[in-house]
Every structure is written in structure tokens, then in C-alpha cells.
């Protein structure tokens, strides 16, 4: 599973990264988590804002910190 955290590195992006890492750990799924911080790289995903979470190419949330339970449900679907 490929997970990308989109965001230039503000506190909300960091909090999102933390929640995703915890969700990955707690669900035990095998996942490669990558932070995408470049403006043009982020723009390529077509998101209106950050932070955003992308799982296997599918954008799951935009402009907000996701709830851990939501991330877990994305990981286990």
C-alpha cells in the first residue's frame, strides 16, 4: 500500500503524518508512507488545499486533519 501525505510541512501536516503513522501501526497493514512537500508535486494531485492524504493514488481527504478511525477504515478496505 502506498500512502502519500501532501503538505509543505505545517503543524497540521505533521499532525496528519502522525495520525497516519499510528493508524498504519495499529492496523498492521504493510504500507510505504511518503511525505510530498513540493508545491508542484502537490498541485499534480489536483487538491484545493493541504494537508491531504492519498492512498494508492486515491485522494481520501483534503484540507483537514483526518480522524484516526477514518484512516484505519481507508487502510482496511
Amino acid at each position: 500500500m502506498e500512502i502519500k501525505i501532501l503538505g509543505p510541512g505545517c503543524p497540521k501536516c505533521e499532525q496528519t503524518s502522525k495520525i497516519v503513522a499510528e493508524a498504519v501501526s495499529e492496523t498492521g497493514v504493510e504500507a510505504n508512507v511518503e511525505k510530498v512537500t513540493g508545491v508542484m508535486d502537490i498541485a499534480g494531485y489536483g487538491v484545493f488545499g493541504t494537508p491531504a492524504v492519498v492512498i494508492d493514488g486515491d485522494v481520501k481527504c483534503v484540507g483537514k486533519i483526518p480522524k484516526k478511525e477514518d484512516v484505519k477504515s481507508w487502510l482496511t478496505k
Binding site: 489536483g46 487538491v47 484545493f48 488545499g49 481520501k60 483534503v62 484540507g63
Partner: peptide, 23 residues
């Protein structure tokens, strides 16, 4: 505000659709 791409939503591209859902 900020103009956004309606075409991207019409094209069902997840970044655009999810952005519109979450705004």
C-alpha cells in the same frame, strides 16, 4: 476565494472531487 477546476470534478479525478467534498 479561489477558483477551482470544475472539469477535474467532472472528470471524476479524486483530488478534485474530494477537495469539493471537504471544502
Amino acid at each position: 476565494g479561489k477558483m477551482f477546476c470544475l472539469a477535474g470534478i467532472g472528470g471524476n479525478l479524486s483530488g478534485f472531487v474530494q477537495s469539493a467534498k471537504d471544502i
